Amino acid sequence: MAERAHGGTAVNRAAAVAAAASRLSRAGTERSPCAPVRDLLGTTDIAAAYEVQQRLAQRKLDLGARVVGRKIGLTSAAVQRQLGVDRPDFGILFEDMDMSGRATAVPSARLLQPRVEAEIAFVLGEDLDAADLDLKRVRGAVDHARAALEIVDSRIAGWDITITDTVADNASSGLFVLGAEQVTLDGFEPRDATMTMTLDGSEASTGNGAACLGDPLEALLWLARAAREFGEPLRAGQVVLSGALGPLVPVGPGAVVHAEISGLGSVSATFTGTK
């Protein structure tokens, strides 16, 4: 049965989705990066890529995993340039991805090709399922913000990705770490935040809130609308990683990453293993 995509149109779409999910699942299970899945999905059928993402997520849910939030990816122009894509995407955060409180022992063995980016995390106090979502409503739904490190990872060899590759791969999700300080939006303006991230003590990335779709709250609004359209609205209590404030940085075993975000404090992660 033909499973390849030609000119962006799959000969057998259902078979292509199943084959892409199988390839990515095997890469994760065997701890060995795989070829891109755009040979199956094409580079324009983003809906099919989200079907792959949901299929893989359902496998985790069937095994007892619990969803704790979402991540927004590709919000920074710098990161888009790094990865060769041109639009945001989103992925699912599961409970076992949260390394908060374990910042001295982020397990490198769970990762294939990790890179780290500093972000603003929003923790929701209200559901975002209304049909008339706007910036005011989204802002009011945020209980608090926290500094965060997202440890992105790719099951695709060499990070050789297009938008359909990364969407299918749960938006290249890996792990995440939340800072301890919780700040309400009464006295904190996300778009004005500045960020500095160091790797092993040396400055590795800088940026600001405006680098995240112009305002991390605009990124949250984009996600809230997208999640509702996909039938899985954002819910109270969920964590949203709003997107990179600056360029992402490759890391390896033994790496020590520390980020300072003005108004939110700091967040750190040390990776297990030796260099």
Score class of each variant (00 low, 15 high):
His6Ala: 14
Leu74Ile: 05
Gln113Ala: 14
Arg102Lys: 14
Gly7Gln: 12
Ala193Thr: 07
Thr43Met: 04
Ala147Arg: 11
Val167Tyr: 03
Val167Met: 07
Gly263Val: 05
Phe90Thr: 09
Ala255Phe: 14
Ala269Val: 08
Arg235Pro: 07
Lys71Asp: 03
Glu30Val: 14
Leu135Glu: 13
Arg70Tyr: 03
Leu63Gly: 07
Asp134Val: 09
Ala145Leu: 04
Asp134Ser: 11
Ser202Ala: 15
Leu199Gly: 09
Ala21Arg: 13
Thr43Tyr: 00
Thr166Met: 05
Leu133Lys: 14
Phe94Met: 14
Ala78Gln: 13
Asp98Thr: 10
Thr104Phe: 00
Met97Gln: 15
Ser242Trp: 02
Trp222Tyr: 14
Ala105Ile: 04
Val267Arg: 06
Trp222Pro: 12
Arg228Ile: 05
Ala10Glu: 08
Leu56Trp: 00
Arg38Gly: 00
Val123Pro: 02
Asn170Thr: 04
Val152Cys: 15
Glu229Gln: 09
Ala5Tyr: 02
Phe230Asp: 06
Pro107Ile: 15
Ala130Phe: 02
Gly179Pro: 04
Leu149Asp: 08
Thr272Trp: 07
Glu30Gln: 15
Ser262Arg: 14
Ser22Cys: 04
Glu189His: 08
Thr164Glu: 09
Ile72Asn: 04
His6Gln: 13
Met99Phe: 09
Arg38Ile: 07
Val142Phe: 01
Gly231Ser: 06
Ala2Met: 13
Thr194Pro: 00
Val267Leu: 02
Gly252Thr: 14
Glu150Cys: 11
Cys212Glu: 07
Ser100Ile: 12
Gly263Met: 00
Met1Ile: 06
Leu93Asn: 08
Gly237Leu: 08
Ala77Val: 06
Ala78Asn: 05
His144Ile: 01
Thr194Phe: 09
Leu112Tyr: 08
Glu126Lys: 15
Ala145His: 00
Ala269Ile: 11
Ala27Ser: 13
Arg191Ile: 10
Gly209His: 02
Glu3Pro: 00
Phe94Ile: 12
Ile161Arg: 10
Glu126Phe: 02
Glu218Phe: 08
Ala131Thr: 08
Leu111Val: 08
Leu221Val: 12
Ser173Lys: 01
Leu124Val: 08
Gln53Thr: 00
Ile161Thr: 15
Ile261Phe: 05
Asp98Tyr: 12
Leu264Ile: 02
Gly201Ser: 01
Ala5Phe: 01
Asp45Pro: 06
Ala131Ser: 12
Gly187Lys: 01
Lys136Ala: 15
Leu175His: 04
Gly69Tyr: 10
Ala121Lys: 09
Val79Ile: 11
Ala48Gly: 12
Ala14Glu: 15
Thr270Tyr: 02
Asp134Met: 08
Pro33Asp: 13
Asp89Arg: 05
Asp160Met: 05
Val85Trp: 01
Gly201Met: 12
Gly187Cys: 05
Asp169Pro: 11
Thr196Ile: 13
Arg23Asp: 06
